[in-house]
């Protein structure tokens, strides 16, 4: 039966690739042929467990869970304290804490600060107008570049303005006050673990 099927298969294939260079020995049932590779392995015999042991195991699991539930229920009414809130009334009571400024500022000092603030406003405003000019000039420059590119070739233009999510998550680490020290191995800081573990956590 299988031989006949193979033959049918072979004939079918031969008709498909009549003019190909493949040489097939699958044409006649009496020709030699390779058996298919067996990649299986004999099934393992299942170990049979004693039903009593299984029952004992389940019982132990259940008891463990029940114990944990009982433990949690015992502390159900205990809320986890929030330290920030605890200290607040204490702080409110302690109103005697003073500011660093003990004596009120002199008239002269107040005047100085006011004038400095005005000066600062002017400085910032001029900075802002300068920034605006720069931004405008950059945008203009890019517009001109894109216009020129469009005039040269529509396809290149399309490629240039296509959305590319390669650029999107953008991160930068800004300038710092002093440059990094070469080959500096920063030491691990020392710390004392003070986190409290509460029951049921």
């Amino acid at each position: 039966m299988i031989g006949v099927l193979n033959l049918a298969n072979a004939v079918f294939r031969a008709s498909l690739i009549s003019s190909s260079r493949n040489i097939s020995t699958y044409i006649h049932p009496l020709y030699f042929r390779a058996t298919e590779v067996l990649l299986g392995e004999p099934l393992k015999k299942k170990k049979r467990l004693d039903p009593a042991i299984v029952r004992a195991r389940e019982e132990r699991k259940r008891k463990k869970l029940q114990k944990r539930i009982r433990q949690l229920e015992k502390h159900a009414n205990h809320m986890k304290p929030i330290f920030e809130i605890d200290t607040l009334p204490e702080l409110l009571q302690n109103e005697k804490r003073t500011c660093h400024l003990s004596v009120p500022l002199s008239e002269k000092e107040i005047e100085r600060r006011k004038s400095l603030e005005k000066e600062w406003c002017k400085y910032k405003h001029s900075q802002w107008t300068k920034d605006l000019h720069v931004i405008k000039s950059i945008i203009k420059s890019q517009e001109i570049a894109l216009k020129e590119l469009k005039a040269v070739s529509k396809q290149l233009y399309k490629k240039a303005v296509e959305f590319d999510d390669l650029y999107m998550p953008y991160s930068v680490t800004g300038p710092v006050y002093t440059p990094s020290i070469k080959n500096y191995d920063s030491p691990d800081g020392e710390y004392i673990e003070t986190t409290v573990k509460y029951i049921g956590e």
């Binding site: 420059s141 890019q142 303005v161």
Partner: peptide, 12 residues
């Protein structure tokens, strides 16, 4: 790292 696929300046 490039700042985008679109040219930002032009000169001819």
């Amino acid at each position: 790292k490039f700042y985008g696929n679109a040219p930002i300046g032009f000169y001819q």
